[in-house]
């Protein structure tokens, strides 16, 4: 037995207050019923952008127009497989660090905070959504819910070893409260919604 574990648990048992039951979490109604429009508005508010899939061909011309020429683009969305730069579980970090744009499928969107759920089955390596310079997340409109309560009701957080809500681009306000996008993760986040 681990003596520190036993010591800590014994002290807790000696010191803890008498137990009270957990509160019931009521079903809070979402603030808005137009979930997709709400999600889109929140994305804009948190510094992300969004587009409808039909307006977003994700073609070489489209990437060049929106992100620039000569970029390394990685696509792991099965609907939009981009095969030019294959990335798998063995791709070295140094190579991943050269990626300019990554297209990654999301599994769920949350309107109240503009977050998209990505778990490790969505990516060949966990680091991909962070190490890429620009991030494109894809989502079906019917995968968007209103609140985080609804989201956690649908999700099984321990289903995969790693999962994350991503709400917008990496940002910081650590220097004089000036908001700067692109701190250490993706500089921009675009959410492409398939209707």
């Amino acid at each position: 037995m681990n003596p520190s574990r036993e010591a800590i648990l014994a002290r807790i048992r000696a010191h803890k207050p008498s137990p009270v039951p957990p509160p019931e979490i009521p079903a809070f109604a979402p603030a808005r019923e137009d979930t997709v429009a709400w999600f889109q508005a929140t994305l804009e508010a948190v510094g992300a952008t969004w587009a409808w899939a039909e307006d977003t061909p994700l073609s070489p011309e489209w990437f060049e127009k929106h992100y620039g020429a000569g970029l390394r683009i990685v696509g792991v969305d099965p609907d939009w497989a981009i095969t030019d730069n294959p990335v798998d579980s063995q791709t070295p970090l140094a190579e991943l660090n050269k990626i300019d744009v990554a297209v990654i499928p999301g599994k769920l969107g949350v309107a109240e905070n503009g977050a998209v759920w990505v778990d490790e089955t969505c990516v060949p390596q966990r680091i991909l959504p962070f190490i890429t310079q620009h991030l494109i997340l894809t989502l079906r409109a019917n995968q968007i819910v209103g609140t985080l309560h609804q989201a956690y009701q649908q999700l099984a957080v321990a289903e995969t070893g790693f999962s994350i809500f991503i709400a917008g681009p990496s940002k910081t306000a650590d220097i004089e409260q000036a908001l700067v996008k692109g701190a250490q993760g993706a500089r921009t986040t675009l959410v492409v919604i398939k209707s």
């Binding site: 929140t42 508010a45 948190v46 579980s89 109240e112 905070n113 503009g114 977050a115 966990r126 962070f130 985080l148 957080v157 321990a158 995969t160 070893g161 790693f162 999962s163 994350i164 809500f165 991503i166 709400a167 917008g168 681009p169 990496s170 940002k171 993760g185």
Partner: peptide, 15 residues
């Protein structure tokens, strides 16, 4: 903010 940009859930190490 409505939430932080990243809310990471860690359950198992990578292989």
């Amino acid at each position: 903010q409505p939430s932080t940009v990243y809310t990471a859930h860690h359950h198992r190490p990578r292989p």
